[in-house]
Nucleic acid binder design. Structure first.
Lengths: 156, 156
DNA sequence: GACGGTTACTTGAATTGTCAAGTACTGCTA
DNA sequence: TAGCAGTACTTGACAATTCAAGTAACCGTC
Protein backbone atom coordinates (compact mmCIF):
# COMPACT_ATOMS: atom_id res chain seq x y z
CA UNK A 1 0.00 0.00 0.00
CA UNK A 2 1.91 2.96 -1.18
CA UNK A 3 -1.04 5.20 -1.90
CA UNK A 4 -1.31 6.90 1.47
CA UNK A 5 -2.28 10.39 0.39
CA UNK A 6 -4.59 12.00 2.91
CA UNK A 7 -7.82 13.61 1.70
CA UNK A 8 -7.87 17.21 0.49
CA UNK A 9 -9.90 19.71 2.51
CA UNK A 10 -12.68 19.63 -0.06
CA UNK A 11 -12.78 15.87 0.00
CA UNK A 12 -12.81 15.80 3.79
CA UNK A 13 -15.73 18.16 3.99
CA UNK A 14 -17.68 16.24 1.37
CA UNK A 15 -16.85 12.95 3.08
CA UNK A 16 -18.06 14.14 6.46
CA UNK A 17 -21.30 15.35 4.99
CA UNK A 18 -21.87 12.24 2.93
CA UNK A 19 -21.20 10.22 6.07
CA UNK A 20 -23.86 12.19 7.88
CA UNK A 21 -26.36 11.71 5.06
CA UNK A 22 -25.67 7.97 4.86
CA UNK A 23 -26.31 7.68 8.59
CA UNK A 24 -29.20 10.08 9.12
CA UNK A 25 -31.27 9.56 6.00
CA UNK A 26 -31.80 5.80 6.42
CA UNK A 27 -32.38 6.35 10.14
CA UNK A 28 -35.07 8.93 9.42
CA UNK A 29 -36.75 6.66 6.89
CA UNK A 30 -36.61 3.75 9.32
CA UNK A 31 -38.20 5.89 12.00
CA UNK A 32 -41.14 6.87 9.82
CA UNK A 33 -41.70 3.33 8.56
CA UNK A 34 -41.38 1.85 12.03
CA UNK A 35 -43.86 4.33 13.44
CA UNK A 36 -46.43 4.15 10.65
CA UNK A 37 -46.08 0.58 9.42
CA UNK A 38 -43.92 -1.39 11.88
CA UNK A 39 -41.55 -2.05 9.05
CA UNK A 40 -37.83 -1.64 8.50
CA UNK A 41 -36.63 0.30 5.48
CA UNK A 42 -35.12 -2.93 4.22
CA UNK A 43 -38.39 -4.75 4.87
CA UNK A 44 -40.36 -2.13 2.98
CA UNK A 45 -37.92 -2.14 0.11
CA UNK A 46 -38.19 -5.90 -0.26
CA UNK A 47 -42.00 -5.80 -0.23
CA UNK A 48 -41.93 -2.97 -2.78
CA UNK A 49 -39.57 -4.88 -5.08
CA UNK A 50 -41.80 -7.93 -4.87
CA UNK A 51 -44.90 -5.89 -5.65
CA UNK A 52 -43.27 -4.69 -8.86
CA UNK A 53 -41.87 -8.07 -9.86
CA UNK A 54 -43.65 -10.15 -12.53
CA UNK A 55 -46.24 -12.29 -10.78
CA UNK A 56 -45.37 -10.48 -7.55
CA UNK A 57 -42.74 -13.16 -7.01
CA UNK A 58 -38.98 -13.46 -7.22
CA UNK A 59 -36.15 -15.88 -6.52
CA UNK A 60 -34.43 -15.26 -3.20
CA UNK A 61 -31.09 -14.49 -4.81
CA UNK A 62 -32.58 -12.01 -7.30
CA UNK A 63 -34.45 -10.32 -4.52
CA UNK A 64 -31.35 -10.10 -2.37
CA UNK A 65 -29.49 -8.42 -5.23
CA UNK A 66 -32.36 -5.99 -5.89
CA UNK A 67 -32.40 -5.00 -2.23
CA UNK A 68 -28.60 -4.93 -1.90
CA UNK A 69 -28.63 -7.35 1.00
CA UNK A 70 -27.01 -10.69 1.73
CA UNK A 71 -28.90 -13.92 1.15
CA UNK A 72 -28.80 -14.60 4.85
CA UNK A 73 -30.28 -11.25 5.74
CA UNK A 74 -33.04 -11.72 3.20
CA UNK A 75 -33.78 -15.25 4.38
CA UNK A 76 -34.24 -14.07 7.98
CA UNK A 77 -36.40 -11.18 6.84
CA UNK A 78 -38.61 -13.34 4.63
CA UNK A 79 -39.18 -15.64 7.60
CA UNK A 80 -40.51 -12.69 9.60
CA UNK A 81 -42.64 -11.44 6.72
CA UNK A 82 -44.01 -14.95 6.32
CA UNK A 83 -45.03 -15.04 9.99
CA UNK A 84 -46.90 -11.80 9.43
CA UNK A 85 -48.65 -13.24 6.40
CA UNK A 86 -47.29 -10.86 3.78
CA UNK A 87 -45.05 -13.27 1.90
CA UNK A 88 -45.08 -16.98 1.21
CA UNK A 89 -42.24 -19.23 0.12
CA UNK A 90 -42.48 -21.68 -2.74
CA UNK A 91 -39.95 -24.12 -4.09
CA UNK A 92 -38.65 -23.11 -7.52
CA UNK A 93 -40.14 -25.30 -10.21
CA UNK A 94 -37.10 -25.17 -12.50
CA UNK A 95 -34.39 -25.61 -9.85
CA UNK A 96 -35.07 -27.65 -6.75
CA UNK A 97 -32.47 -25.77 -4.72
CA UNK A 98 -34.12 -22.42 -5.17
CA UNK A 99 -36.89 -20.70 -3.25
CA UNK A 100 -39.30 -18.16 -4.62
CA UNK A 101 -40.75 -15.45 -2.41
CA UNK A 102 -44.34 -14.64 -3.35
CA UNK A 103 -46.19 -11.55 -2.16
CA UNK A 104 -49.59 -12.44 -0.70
CA UNK A 105 -52.69 -10.28 -1.18
CA UNK A 106 -52.28 -9.05 2.37
CA UNK A 107 -48.67 -8.19 1.56
CA UNK A 108 -49.70 -6.26 -1.51
CA UNK A 109 -52.30 -4.38 0.50
CA UNK A 110 -49.61 -3.52 3.02
CA UNK A 111 -47.40 -2.00 0.33
CA UNK A 112 -50.28 -0.02 -1.16
CA UNK A 113 -51.16 1.28 2.28
CA UNK A 114 -47.58 2.13 3.27
CA UNK A 115 -46.20 3.59 0.05
CA UNK A 116 -47.77 7.08 0.07
CA UNK A 117 -46.45 8.00 3.49
CA UNK A 118 -43.03 6.65 2.67
CA UNK A 119 -42.81 8.44 -0.65
CA UNK A 120 -43.88 11.66 1.04
CA UNK A 121 -41.03 11.21 3.49
CA UNK A 122 -38.48 10.59 0.74
CA UNK A 123 -39.72 13.70 -0.98
CA UNK A 124 -39.64 15.79 2.17
CA UNK A 125 -36.16 14.69 3.22
CA UNK A 126 -34.46 14.41 -0.13
CA UNK A 127 -36.03 15.72 -3.30
CA UNK A 128 -37.67 18.83 -1.91
CA UNK A 129 -34.17 20.06 -1.06
CA UNK A 130 -32.76 19.45 -4.54
CA UNK A 131 -33.14 21.12 -7.93
CA UNK A 132 -33.77 18.87 -10.95
CA UNK A 133 -30.22 19.63 -11.96
CA UNK A 134 -28.93 18.37 -8.63
CA UNK A 135 -31.01 15.22 -8.97
CA UNK A 136 -29.25 14.55 -12.27
CA UNK A 137 -25.86 15.24 -10.68
CA UNK A 138 -26.65 12.93 -7.79
CA UNK A 139 -27.64 10.21 -10.21
CA UNK A 140 -24.36 10.54 -12.11
CA UNK A 141 -22.32 10.56 -8.95
CA UNK A 142 -24.03 7.46 -7.62
CA UNK A 143 -23.63 5.70 -10.93
CA UNK A 144 -19.91 6.43 -10.92
CA UNK A 145 -19.51 5.20 -7.37
CA UNK A 146 -21.55 2.06 -7.95
CA UNK A 147 -19.36 1.04 -10.85
CA UNK A 148 -16.50 0.73 -8.37
CA UNK A 149 -18.59 -0.87 -5.68
CA UNK A 150 -19.22 -3.89 -7.85
CA UNK A 151 -22.96 -3.46 -8.01
CA UNK A 152 -24.49 -3.65 -11.45
CA UNK A 153 -28.14 -4.27 -10.70
CA UNK A 154 -29.28 -0.68 -11.09
CA UNK A 155 -26.89 0.85 -13.56
CA UNK A 156 -29.02 0.15 -16.66
CA UNK B 1 -51.43 13.98 4.07
CA UNK B 2 -52.49 15.35 0.76
CA UNK B 3 -49.08 15.46 -0.86
CA UNK B 4 -49.13 12.04 -2.45
CA UNK B 5 -47.35 12.72 -5.72
CA UNK B 6 -45.30 9.74 -6.81
CA UNK B 7 -41.67 10.24 -7.82
CA UNK B 8 -40.74 11.19 -11.38
CA UNK B 9 -38.72 8.69 -13.41
CA UNK B 10 -35.55 10.72 -12.86
CA UNK B 11 -36.14 10.84 -9.15
CA UNK B 12 -36.86 7.14 -8.99
CA UNK B 13 -33.67 6.26 -10.76
CA UNK B 14 -31.62 8.57 -8.54
CA UNK B 15 -33.34 7.23 -5.45
CA UNK B 16 -32.61 3.63 -6.31
CA UNK B 17 -28.98 4.40 -6.92
CA UNK B 18 -28.61 6.49 -3.82
CA UNK B 19 -30.23 3.65 -1.87
CA UNK B 20 -27.65 1.27 -3.27
CA UNK B 21 -24.79 3.61 -2.40
CA UNK B 22 -26.10 4.13 1.14
CA UNK B 23 -26.24 0.38 1.62
CA UNK B 24 -23.12 -0.80 -0.16
CA UNK B 25 -20.61 1.92 0.68
CA UNK B 26 -20.85 1.63 4.47
CA UNK B 27 -20.90 -2.15 4.12
CA UNK B 28 -17.69 -2.08 2.10
CA UNK B 29 -16.01 0.24 4.60
CA UNK B 30 -17.13 -1.96 7.47
CA UNK B 31 -15.70 -5.00 5.75
CA UNK B 32 -12.27 -3.43 5.30
CA UNK B 33 -12.15 -2.08 8.85
CA UNK B 34 -13.39 -5.34 10.34
CA UNK B 35 -10.78 -7.31 8.44
CA UNK B 36 -7.81 -5.01 9.03
CA UNK B 37 -8.60 -3.51 12.45
CA UNK B 38 -11.50 -5.45 14.00
CA UNK B 39 -13.40 -2.20 14.12
CA UNK B 40 -16.81 -1.03 12.96
CA UNK B 41 -17.03 2.01 10.75
CA UNK B 42 -18.86 3.71 13.60
CA UNK B 43 -16.16 2.62 16.03
CA UNK B 44 -13.42 3.97 13.80
CA UNK B 45 -15.25 7.24 13.26
CA UNK B 46 -15.62 7.78 16.99
CA UNK B 47 -11.93 7.09 17.63
CA UNK B 48 -11.00 9.43 14.77
CA UNK B 49 -13.21 12.22 16.13
CA UNK B 50 -11.66 11.81 19.56
CA UNK B 51 -8.15 11.93 18.15
CA UNK B 52 -8.92 15.31 16.56
CA UNK B 53 -10.71 16.74 19.57
CA UNK B 54 -8.91 19.17 21.89
CA UNK B 55 -7.12 17.14 24.53
CA UNK B 56 -8.21 14.00 22.70
CA UNK B 57 -11.35 14.09 24.81
CA UNK B 58 -15.00 14.95 24.35
CA UNK B 59 -18.30 14.91 26.19
CA UNK B 60 -20.46 11.91 25.35
CA UNK B 61 -23.24 14.02 23.89
CA UNK B 62 -20.88 16.05 21.70
CA UNK B 63 -19.27 12.88 20.48
CA UNK B 64 -22.62 11.29 19.72
CA UNK B 65 -23.57 14.33 17.65
CA UNK B 66 -20.23 14.33 15.80
CA UNK B 67 -20.66 10.67 14.94
CA UNK B 68 -24.37 11.01 14.16
CA UNK B 69 -25.32 8.26 16.58
CA UNK B 70 -27.65 8.02 19.55
CA UNK B 71 -26.35 8.45 23.06
CA UNK B 72 -27.24 4.87 23.82
CA UNK B 73 -25.35 3.56 20.84
CA UNK B 74 -22.32 5.60 21.78
CA UNK B 75 -22.48 4.54 25.41
CA UNK B 76 -22.46 0.84 24.46
CA UNK B 77 -19.63 1.41 22.00
CA UNK B 78 -17.50 3.34 24.49
CA UNK B 79 -17.91 0.47 26.95
CA UNK B 80 -16.44 -1.90 24.36
CA UNK B 81 -13.62 0.49 23.49
CA UNK B 82 -12.89 0.86 27.19
CA UNK B 83 -12.58 -2.92 27.56
CA UNK B 84 -10.08 -2.89 24.74
CA UNK B 85 -8.09 -0.12 26.40
CA UNK B 86 -8.49 2.54 23.75
CA UNK B 87 -10.76 4.92 25.63
CA UNK B 88 -11.31 5.83 29.25
CA UNK B 89 -14.29 7.55 30.87
CA UNK B 90 -13.99 10.47 33.24
CA UNK B 91 -16.66 12.39 35.08
CA UNK B 92 -17.09 15.94 33.72
CA UNK B 93 -15.59 18.48 36.08
CA UNK B 94 -18.05 21.24 35.28
CA UNK B 95 -21.23 19.14 35.22
CA UNK B 96 -21.55 16.12 37.44
CA UNK B 97 -24.07 14.44 35.16
CA UNK B 98 -21.75 14.37 32.21
CA UNK B 99 -19.09 11.89 31.15
CA UNK B 100 -16.05 12.65 29.10
CA UNK B 101 -14.54 10.06 26.80
CA UNK B 102 -10.75 10.30 26.68
CA UNK B 103 -8.61 8.63 24.04
CA UNK B 104 -5.74 6.65 25.61
CA UNK B 105 -2.28 6.45 24.08
CA UNK B 106 -3.08 2.94 22.90
CA UNK B 107 -6.26 4.31 21.33
CA UNK B 108 -4.35 7.03 19.55
CA UNK B 109 -1.85 4.49 18.26
CA UNK B 110 -4.76 2.41 16.97
CA UNK B 111 -6.11 5.36 14.97
CA UNK B 112 -2.70 6.18 13.54
CA UNK B 113 -2.24 2.56 12.54
CA UNK B 114 -5.70 2.17 11.03
CA UNK B 115 -6.18 5.48 9.25
CA UNK B 116 -4.03 4.98 6.13
CA UNK B 117 -5.76 1.77 5.06
CA UNK B 118 -9.16 3.26 5.71
CA UNK B 119 -8.42 6.46 3.82
CA UNK B 120 -7.11 4.42 0.91
CA UNK B 121 -10.40 2.55 0.88
CA UNK B 122 -12.47 5.75 0.93
CA UNK B 123 -10.36 7.02 -1.93
CA UNK B 124 -10.66 3.82 -3.92
CA UNK B 125 -14.40 3.48 -3.48
CA UNK B 126 -15.47 7.09 -3.61
CA UNK B 127 -13.12 9.86 -4.67
CA UNK B 128 -11.23 8.00 -7.38
CA UNK B 129 -14.56 7.73 -9.23
CA UNK B 130 -15.35 11.43 -8.99
CA UNK B 131 -14.03 14.58 -10.63
CA UNK B 132 -13.25 17.57 -8.38
CA UNK B 133 -16.36 19.16 -9.84
CA UNK B 134 -18.47 16.21 -8.76
CA UNK B 135 -16.97 16.35 -5.28
CA UNK B 136 -18.16 19.95 -5.04
CA UNK B 137 -21.61 18.98 -6.34
CA UNK B 138 -21.83 16.13 -3.85
CA UNK B 139 -20.91 18.48 -1.05
CA UNK B 140 -23.64 20.93 -2.04
CA UNK B 141 -26.21 18.18 -2.38
CA UNK B 142 -25.38 16.76 1.04
CA UNK B 143 -25.46 20.20 2.60
CA UNK B 144 -28.93 20.82 1.17
CA UNK B 145 -30.20 17.48 2.39
CA UNK B 146 -28.70 17.86 5.85
CA UNK B 147 -30.44 21.17 6.35
CA UNK B 148 -33.73 19.27 6.17
CA UNK B 149 -32.52 16.33 8.19
CA UNK B 150 -32.08 18.51 11.24
CA UNK B 151 -28.34 17.98 11.51
CA UNK B 152 -26.26 21.08 11.86
CA UNK B 153 -23.00 19.73 13.21
CA UNK B 154 -21.15 19.70 9.91
CA UNK B 155 -22.71 22.48 7.93
CA UNK B 156 -20.19 25.16 8.97
C1' DG C 1 -32.98 25.06 50.89
C1' DA C 2 -36.34 21.79 49.23
C1' DC C 3 -39.17 20.58 45.32
C1' DG C 4 -40.40 19.59 40.33
C1' DG C 5 -38.93 19.53 35.92
C1' DT C 6 -35.12 18.84 32.81
C1' DT C 7 -30.74 17.10 31.16
C1' DA C 8 -26.83 13.57 30.67
C1' DC C 9 -25.89 9.41 30.60
C1' DT C 10 -26.30 4.18 31.50
C1' DT C 11 -28.41 -0.16 31.48
C1' DG C 12 -30.87 -4.47 30.03
C1' DA C 13 -34.11 -6.67 27.12
C1' DA C 14 -35.60 -7.28 22.56
C1' DT C 15 -34.77 -6.75 17.73
C1' DT C 16 -31.88 -6.83 13.82
C1' DG C 17 -27.83 -8.07 11.17
C1' DT C 18 -23.61 -10.89 10.30
C1' DC C 19 -20.76 -14.88 10.03
C1' DA C 20 -19.75 -19.57 9.56
C1' DA C 21 -21.55 -23.92 8.87
C1' DG C 22 -25.05 -26.97 7.32
C1' DT C 23 -28.52 -29.10 3.91
C1' DA C 24 -30.30 -30.10 -0.49
C1' DC C 25 -30.12 -30.05 -5.10
C1' DT C 26 -27.67 -29.45 -9.81
C1' DG C 27 -24.74 -30.55 -13.41
C1' DC C 28 -20.27 -31.88 -15.04
C1' DT C 29 -16.84 -35.61 -15.66
C1' DA C 30 -15.52 -39.86 -16.52
C1' DT D 1 -24.63 -43.58 -13.54
C1' DA D 2 -21.61 -42.73 -9.66
C1' DG D 3 -18.91 -39.33 -7.76
C1' DC D 4 -17.91 -34.61 -6.74
C1' DA D 5 -17.50 -29.70 -7.17
C1' DG D 6 -20.44 -25.92 -7.10
C1' DT D 7 -24.86 -23.35 -6.28
C1' DA D 8 -29.09 -21.78 -3.55
C1' DC D 9 -30.72 -21.26 0.35
C1' DT D 10 -31.33 -21.89 5.56
C1' DT D 11 -30.01 -22.03 10.17
C1' DG D 12 -28.08 -20.92 14.74
C1' DA D 13 -24.81 -18.59 17.45
C1' DC D 14 -22.97 -14.25 18.07
C1' DA D 15 -22.45 -9.04 17.69
C1' DA D 16 -24.41 -4.67 17.02
C1' DT D 17 -28.40 -1.54 17.61
C1' DT D 18 -32.50 0.23 19.33
C1' DC D 19 -36.00 1.08 22.68
C1' DA D 20 -37.76 1.91 27.05
C1' DA D 21 -36.69 2.61 31.60
C1' DG D 22 -33.63 3.83 35.23
C1' DT D 23 -30.15 6.79 37.89
C1' DA D 24 -27.93 10.86 39.07
C1' DA D 25 -27.02 15.64 38.86
C1' DC D 26 -28.45 20.32 37.56
C1' DC D 27 -31.48 24.53 37.60
C1' DG D 28 -35.18 27.62 38.46
C1' DT D 29 -38.73 28.78 41.75
C1' DC D 30 -40.89 29.45 45.86
Amino acid sequence: MEDNRWLTDDEQRAWRRLGAVMTLLPAALDTQLQRDAELTHFGYWVLAMLSEAPGRAARMSELAALANGSQSRLSHLISKLEERGWVRRERASDDGRGSVAVLTDAGHAKVVETAPGHVAQVRALLFDSLSPRQVAQLDEICTAVLSRLGNDSCLG
